[in-house]
Design a protein around this nucleic acid. Sequence first.
DNA 1: TCACATTGTAAGCAAATACTTGCATTTACT
DNA 2: AGTAAATGCAAGTATTTGCTTACAATGTGA
Lengths: 199, 199
Amino acid sequence: MTQSTQDRIINAAIELVKEKGFVGATTREIAKRAQVNEVTLFRHFGNKKGIIEAAIEKLSFVNSLSVSLSEDVVWDLTKDLSMIVKIYQTKLEEKRDLILISFKEAGRFPELDQMISGLPMKYKEMIMDYFQTMIQKGKVPPFNVEIAATNFLFLNFGYFMLKSRLNPLAEDMSLDKFINQNVAQFIDSLQGEPSINSD
Amino acid sequence: MTQSTQDRIINAAIELVKEKGFVGATTREIAKRAQVNEVTLFRHFGNKKGIIEAAIEKLSFVNSLSVSLSEDVVWDLTKDLSMIVKIYQTKLEEKRDLILISFKEAGRFPELDQMISGLPMKYKEMIMDYFQTMIQKGKVPPFNVEIAATNFLFLNFGYFMLKSRLNPLAEDMSLDKFINQNVAQFIDSLQGEPSINSD
DNA sequence: TCACATTGTAAGCAAATACTTGCATTTACT
DNA sequence: AGTAAATGCAAGTATTTGCTTACAATGTGA
């Protein structure tokens, strides 16, 4: 199925802004990449900024990043955290372009900044809630849930960032490997069990 | 002591490129912020790109990021890792502007890209060496050093990135707190001991 | 077929930008 | 004092950029 004119423009704009920054991405080049005449951009979105703002609105409403905790949780540390990481990282991946743009253009799109900067906090709070409940259920020995949730957040965010920006390292940074190795080690540390095998 | 003309120009350029990107930072504004006539930029650095390239060369030679492992290591897990994190994060902080620029302007300054992208790998390898030796010395039970080093890297990098870019969260993200809480929890997980206290 | 919406074409404009040139002024050093 | 280097000043140029206007071509649904 063919993309609408608006969608082609939005996608081309996102690509170019990601590559060259907002100022570096010219309307002529956006139009060329979208295979559209330059005036069409302005007819649809008013001005250059309007294109990116439309992209932000579109991508932020399509899928919010709140992981549905109540459903799908089976109160098994490994199963649950693996699932949560998978969902979270997948959704981050979908939003990767916008996240990278928000890093590049910090301050230019306040709405985007707000949206992006809220993500880690929400994630941390959700994880804290989950840990708290697991402790109450007696599934894990008690621990400081805030510190653990912060570490879990750093782990996830560090993985995402290094994977997104430092491709040389990314050769063997698949999501599955991350979950089965790195997340697994973190999980072990919460259970007070001996660490992962040495081979 | 007063800065030299070159230094004022370089610092102003770094500030502005960090704020507005390379294309968005105009030579007029750089000159104004450096309290220097615009022509002086070109007389010293040839063209706009030359300013940033000079900044890269200057800041990358002043202090390389290789942590001196052989010295200062006392083969105590907590003391050593705390020291390493402190040194590493402090040096990252010194280079923060360049790191953020390399994120903003990925591809524009290959030399910078190369320098930045090499940091995590070096860090990981150094940590792996340290873990390996600690195991050989019998100071810690054996574990998979690669996974542990990767997690340690993610922890450090995630902390740095979230602290650098998401200020709202940064209120209570001091380096000391990070070391005493988050790094401490990681250390505990390697020693096979019960996790941190719940209060 | 007719009306209307969408897109293309051509031309251009006002502003900004990187960079240059020629010359005056200041600063530093002997 | 005098010389040379560093910096300022004024003016300008060629190009690019965001955006506009006027009009023709194409498609689409009644």
